[in-house]
Design a protein around this nucleic acid. Structure first.
Length: 835
DNA sequence: AGCACGCCGACT
DNA sequence: GTCGGCGTGCTC
């Protein structure tokens, strides 16, 4: 270790390796010739078994016991790829989420830097193979056709085939060769060759006629190159010279030989923001409203205290359009002025050019952008520029938290309730807000969490731990500064929300999906040249079973959560306890025959709307119409230019778009989401309705929202209609306390997937039995096992899914002792959804 | 992950 | 008898 303070200890370090499934920490020796280069955080290559793998040094090894160790083979990057604080953060995330440390640590690197070890297979056997063995035949054909392939390539070519076992046999038989390989990083710095004049313009002019045979093409090319360089007397990317002259490297080399130019190589940064010019964006801070001023005092004070005291996270409680972004900008400016750095997390969908340009205008040259649509080279370069201190603000989705800043001072998580902050697709299943709380504490940074609808458990924690709560209850409109004038601050009222009881509509003989008042309003505002949005909550709508006459929802007799309707096997099921029953013919409460599931898509809404208002221009936005790349933006820009009167859409409509001509938002059926078998169903519905309601009346025309529902008395709908988050929160919290769900307990969700339904069910039953035994043995009094039951989405991508929920004081701690037995299970601590 | 080792049943 | 299935344990 270069900076080791213990020279008498053996030169050993602890290393975490990039092999899924090998989560441990291993000791390696630092050979003398690498002593100066190996540091905590270094990316190295080490021998592991018969292979070589990538690893990250996580610590020196003072506890070295004299055990046999092997030596580090190479160091890949002169600088550490993670900071000490990041390693500590990875440890915390690993412990909290029950994920192996290596999976967390390597998830912090830009994609392509570290590579997993693989095996290169080469066919060396005869042309003919055993025709009776299908897998063997397929493997041999593949390798003969495409030449040597890596294991990962074969996986892609032969899905669902157990070819590795076959390959092992073939290697033993001597017809197949298997060579371990370690791919080099797929990202590397971009180097361009540059040329620059090496002598005075006079000497160049003098040399111009003597660069080749008179009249030759080479002469003309070389002259063109020099003339261009005379106009641009600095190191110039040679591709420019090729373009203007039609020449190539041979010409340049000739000019270099003659001593007329210098050829050299320079690294260039790939910058996704290069083409973006934030003209028209304010460069100076905007004036604050009274609420913003109050909020700013707290944030500013925190920024100045944080290095000396443990500063609590700050909850910025404000609706969309309440001026949160301006506070973020000012906080970033304050932190930068102290020489520290800032990370701004934004949900991927909200990462619009407008947001980026606003930051870029205020902090030119200092802002880096992370985004899923960037090339891996752009990501890698942004990451390196941040590591080298060339950038000091990073904006991006959850992974941007892992920017290797060494003087972090501020973390902002905007719209912190957004589900995209939880990584659900691939392990490690962490939540960026949880991680940010830990990271801010570790790095002594200020953390600002912004949301109008914070998750109930977060708000509960904020209250309990007395986090500062900053309220921005009003929407602000800032008239842009006119020459020399100060900007004006106006506040806009929240839109009026009207609840329509659809049972009454039915009683009055209206069997349509639209209430009379919604139709009246639609007619009125479109006549006035304004626009409307019709929102349809699709999630789970086909499984939502209720009585159209009395609104009754059938619940599980054991769990008291709504039953859902499924086709396979047909009937009603409780996704909590696996209780099943057939669909009743009549409503159990009022005996009406109108008891059935509710299936409704945007196409149907469009058709029904056409029947009433054939003249209206209607746009439809759902996953099918916006599937093609760019279609979403196209539909939205079409609508915002008023080339349509009505926009019909699903969830994706709820996110922060600003459409000033929209004066009416209609929610076709507000209660759909309430019947989902998830204890957060009410919370999700409240959030969604609040966001959708926020779409109306963003402009000076004002606006109203119409919520159609069969459960007008439901608290989620009532509080959403009153824009009353805290009322909802109190109600929801009381319910959670009663039923013992978070924040009054912790959940761990265990999921198993298999292509065969019985195997999945069987494995789930088996594990449930084992867990019950572990619970009994450990005398764990405060842990319930819920399930096993099929997941709400019982089949996903061809896999049958079953789940087990553990609920208790600390089920994660209990499971930690049994992790090795959950190898094939997906484990989610604090799952964001139980579907 | 990959590869040993070791244990079992099914065929040359 | 061997081949090949797969459960278990190990890699510094």
């Amino acid at each position: 270790m270069a900076s080791s303070s213990l020279p008498e200890t053996p030169p050993c370090v602890q290393i975490v390796i990039d092999l899924p499934g090998v989560g441990g920490v291993f000791d390696y020796q630092v050979p003398p010739h690498l002593m100066e280069r190996v540091q905590v955080g270094s990316l190295v290559i080490v021998p592991f078994g018969e292979r070589r793998v990538y690893g990250i040094v996580v610590a020196g090894s003072p506890s070295f016991q004299g055990r046999a160790t092997r030596a580090i083979e190479a160091v890949l990057d002169e600088r550490p790829v993670v900071t000490a604080a990041q390693i500590e953060l990875a440890r915390i995330i690993s412990t909290e989420t029950l994920s192996p440390l290596n999976s967390v640590l390597f998830a912090m690197l830009p994609p392509g830097l570290s590579q997993q070890a693989d095996v290169l297979y080469t066919w060396i056997g005869p042309e003919e193979v055993d025709e009776t063995r299908a897998t063997e035949k397929a493997l041999a054909r593949l390798l003969k056709r495409r030449g040597p392939l890596r294991g990962r390539q074969i996986d892609a070519a032969l899905p669902n085939r157990d070819w590795r076992a076959v390959a092992r046999r073939l290697v033993r038989q001597g017809v197949l060769r298997a060579d371990p390989v370690l791919p080099p990083p797929s990202v590397r710095p971009k180097i361009v060759r540059t040329a620059q004049l090496a002598c005075s313009p006079e000497e160049i002019e003098a040399a111009l006629p003597h660069l080749g045979r008179p009249g030759s093409a080479a002469l003309a090319r070389r002259q063109a190159m020099l003339r261009f360089l005379l106009q641009e007397p600095w190191p110039l990317d040679v591709t420019w010279l090729y373009a203007v002259s039609g020449g190539n490297l041979r010409d340049l080399e000739r000019l270099a030989e003659l001593g007329l130019i210098h050829l050299s190589e320079t690294e260039v940064w790939r910058d996704p923001l290069e083409g973006i010019h934030p003209e028209g964006e304010p460069v100076e801070p905007l004036e604050f409203s009274e609420d913003q001023k109050r909020a700013w005092e707290t944030i500013c004070q925190a920024i100045h205290q944080v290095e000396h005291a443990d500063v609590k996270p700050i909850l910025l409680f404000g609706v969309t359009g309440s001026g949160k972004t301006e506070l973020y900008l000012k906080a970033v400016a304050e932190v930068l002025s102290q020489g520290r750095q800032a990370v701004v997390l934004v949900p991927e969908i909200a990462l619009t050019p407008q947001v980026v340009r606003r930051f870029l205008a205020r902090f030119p040259g200092k802002v880096g952008l992370v985004h899923s649509r960037l090339s891996s080279g752009e990501r890698y370069d942004t990451w390196r520029r941040a590591r080298e201190g060339r950038l000091s603000v990073i904006i991006g989705p959850r992974s941007a938290l892992f920017t290797p800043f060494d003087r972090l001072g501020l973390v902002i998580v905007d719209e912190c309730h957004e589900p995209s902050y939880h990584q659900s697709e691939t392990p490690p299943h962490y939540h960026a807000v949880q991680a940010a709380i830990a990271y801010a504490r570790l790095t002594k940074s200020v953390l600002v969490l912004g949301s109008a609808t914070p998750e109930v458990h977060l708000f509960y924690r904020a209250q309990k731990e007395e986090w500062p709560l900053l309220r921005l209850p009003l929407r602000v409109r800032v008239s842009r500064v006119v020459e020399g004038q100060t900007s004006r601050i106006e506040t806009a009222p929240m839109p009026e929300v009207k609840i329509v009881d659809m049972r009454q509509e039915l009683k009055a003989g209206n069997r349509s999906i639209f209430s009379r008042i919604l139709l009246e309003n639609l007619d009125q505002i479109t006549r006035a040249g304004q626009q409307a949005i019709l929102f349809l909550n699709r999630l789970g709508s086909a499984t939502y079973v209720f009585c159209r006459e009395c609104g009754y929802v059938l619940k599980c007799p054991r769990c008291d959560i709504p039953l859902t309707y499924h086709l396979e096997p047909q009937g009603l099921i409780c996704h909590r306890c696996n209780y099943r029953r057939k669909m009743p013919d009549t409503c159990p409460q009022c005996a009406s025959r109108e008891f059935r599931q509710y299936g409704l898509g945007t196409e149907r809404v469009e058709r029904e709307l056409f029947k009433v208002f054939p003249h209206l221009r209607v746009l439809r936005m759902d996953s099918s119409t916006s599937r093609p790349k760019g279609a979403l933006d196209l539909i939205l820009s079409h609508f915002s230019r008023h080339q349509a009167d009505v926009l019909i859409g699903t969830q994706m409509l709820a996110k922060g778009l600003d459409l000033p001509l929209v004066t009416l938002v209609g929610v076709i059926l507000a209660d759909v989401g309430l019947s989902l078998p998830d204890f957060r169903a009410a919370e999700r519905t409240f959030q969604l309705l609040t966001q959708v309601a926020g779409r109306a009346g963003r402009g000076p025309l004002g606006g109203r929202v119409i919520l159609q529902t069969f459960q007008p008395e439901h608290y989620a709908i009532r509080y959403a209609s009153q824009h009353d988050y805290e009322g909802f929160y109190q109600h929801e919290l009381a319910l959670r306390r009663e039923i013992g769900y978070p924040p009054f307990s912790q959940l761990v969700r265990l999921e198993f997937r298999h292509r065969e339904a019985e195997v999945a069910a069987h494995e789930a039953e088996w594990l449930a039995g084992r867990i019950r035994r572990w619970l009994a043995e450990s005398g764990q009094p405060h842990c319930d096992l819920i399930g096993p039951a099929p997941c709400f989405y019982a089949r996903l991508e061809g896999y049958y899914r079953w789940q087990i929920i553990l609920r208790g004081d600390d089920p994660a701690a209990f499971l930690r002792a049994h992790l090795s037995e959950l190898k094939d299970w997906r484990v989610e601590v604090d799952p964001p959804s139980l579907l």
